Simulated assay, not measured.
Amino acid sequence: MTLTLILFYAFIAVVSVQIIYYLSFLFSFGIKHAETRIKKHIPISIIICAKNEAENLKKNIPLILNQNYSNFEIVLVNDSSSDDSLEIMEEFASNYNSIKLVNVKVSEAFWGNKKYALTLGIKASKHEFLVFTDADCKPNSNEWLAHLSSHFSNEKSIVLGYGAYAKKKFSLLNKLIRFETVMTALQYFSYANMKSPYMGVGRNMAYKKDLFFNNCGFSSHMSIKSGDDDLFINEVSNPSNTAICFTKESFTISEPKTSFKAWVLQKRRHISTAKHYKSKHKILLGLFYITQLLFWILGIVLCFIGFSWLWVTILIILRFIIQWFCFGFSAQKLKESDLIFWMPILEILLVTSQLSIFIINLISKPKHWK
Rank of each mutant, 00 (worst) to 15 (best):
V106C: 09
N68D: 15
K58A: 10
E249S: 15
Y188W: 04
L186I: 13
A164M: 05
S226Q: 02
A50D: 01
L265E: 14
Q18Y: 03
S94Q: 07
F189E: 02
N204V: 09
K370D: 02
R37P: 01
E347H: 06
W144Q: 10
V301F: 13
K225I: 06
I38A: 12
W111K: 14
I321W: 11
A146G: 08
L315T: 03
D83K: 09
E155V: 09
A10Y: 02
K40F: 04
F329K: 15
K126P: 01
F72P: 12
S81C: 13
W369I: 00
L145D: 05
H151D: 03
K168N: 04
A50P: 01
L211A: 14
S94Y: 03
S250D: 09
S45N: 08
E235Q: 14
F260I: 07
C245M: 02
L120Y: 13
T133K: 03
A109Q: 14
V264T: 13
E336G: 11
T4H: 04
L118Y: 11
S219I: 09
S223F: 01
F320E: 15
T181S: 13
N97P: 02
G112K: 00
V201E: 15
N142S: 14
S107L: 05
T184I: 05
E347A: 04
S259I: 00
Y191T: 06
H221F: 15
A10W: 01
W144P: 12
R37D: 15
I61C: 04
F25A: 05
L318H: 07
K248C: 02
K370Y: 02
K248A: 03
S254H: 15
I74F: 07
L63A: 15
A262H: 12
L76F: 11
I74E: 00
Y289T: 15
I46F: 07
S81H: 09
G202A: 10
I363C: 14
L7V: 01
V14D: 00
D79I: 00
A146W: 01
L145N: 04
V312W: 00
Q354H: 15
H41C: 12
H368D: 13
S254R: 15
W311L: 11
H281S: 11
L101I: 01
S272L: 06
L231T: 10
T184N: 12
L285R: 13
K168M: 03
L315V: 10
F27Q: 07
H368F: 13
L285Y: 12
T4E: 06
L287V: 14
K138V: 10
F251Y: 01
I12C: 14
A185H: 06
A10M: 03
A243T: 09
L186H: 12
Y69P: 06
A243W: 03
N60Y: 00
H276Y: 15
L63V: 12
I322N: 02
V301D: 06
E155T: 12
E128T: 06
F295I: 09
N234T: 12
F246D: 01
S70F: 04
V131W: 02
I348S: 04
F260A: 11
P256F: 02
A243E: 07
A331C: 02
N142L: 13
F260E: 13
E249P: 06
L63G: 10
H276T: 12
